[in-house]
Amino acid sequence: MLTIIFFLSSGLFLGWSLGANDAANIFGTAVGTKMIKFKTAALICSVFIILGAVVSGAGASHTLGKLGAVNQLAGAFIVALAAAVTVMWMTKAGLPVSTSQAIVGAIIGWNFFSQTATSMSSLSKIVGTWVFSPILSALFAFLFFHIIKRIVERSKIHLLRLDSYTRIGLLVVGAFGSYSLGANNIGNVMGVFINSSPFQDITLAGLFHLSSIQQLFLLGGIAIAFGVFTYSKKVMMTVGSGIFKLSPVTALVVVLASSITLFLFASQGLHNLLTSLHLPAFPLVPVSSSQAVVGSVMGISLAKGGRNINFKKLSQISMGWIATPLASAILAYVALFFMQNVFMQSVFK
């Protein structure tokens, strides 16, 4: 048991840092501008992240599994650790880092080390989605901004009532965003442990079935929630009053647009529906919530006439598509070498 917990710890750490950083993408402005209390935000965020992870986390994780099936617990430990360290390091450097990009790099590092061929079709699908997701987010934000602006202007709604509706909206959209974040990003945290999962399926009172994967995701979800409660407040305060100065209504648009983007790349139900209708379905790929948010903010800038577009931020994002996976792949490769040759643990079958 102790070994299992030890090996899972790197994934849990990655989950913690995901919670600490990414919750602010969803509730940052709401909490930073005092529209919602931090405790309320943290509670809703945690509950829905866990729900999203357990209920529909499988889709995006499956894609990571196709990229590289890490099949030994010690190997998975190193892969998650390499990703976590990369995330920590890039965060310290002030770059908009993504756990998705870090974990993909680390998996490729494992593939190289174990001399497993990296599925190029999976890789191109993943990278393509990364590029596409902020663009899609910007498009949604652009659209919603115009719609909401028109509704607010036409309805002659009182400032105070608009404020109370915005609060409710921020809570509801925040819950949806948290669910989407959990569903889309749990694969980053726990995906690498799927093939070496130490858990057995359990059925509670004949009604409640939790597969071994769902138990893994539940654990990861709890780690994310822990990150939300212990560290995200600081990040939220920075988001609320720092880089993106948004009004509560535009914040609502940003969160809605980013959440829908995350949801589209995580929802198996939607994927199946579109496939059954012979329509092109969204690939289920873990994307970066931070980059989706940056995309949404750009969308709003465009809707406002293209002012204040932060090109530096854009270049940082595209740098992240390459630099993050590269750093994390190299780190994983080196660490796997040490794990195998110094600590004498088998890291692949």
Partner: peptide, 17 residues
């Protein structure tokens, strides 16, 4: 909670008017 917010908002709207 929404009802709570709303009733307070309505009351204040009345006060401001």
């Amino acid at each position: 909670m929404p009802k709570f917010f709303n009733s307070k908002s309505k009351q204040l709207e009345g006060d401001i008017d």
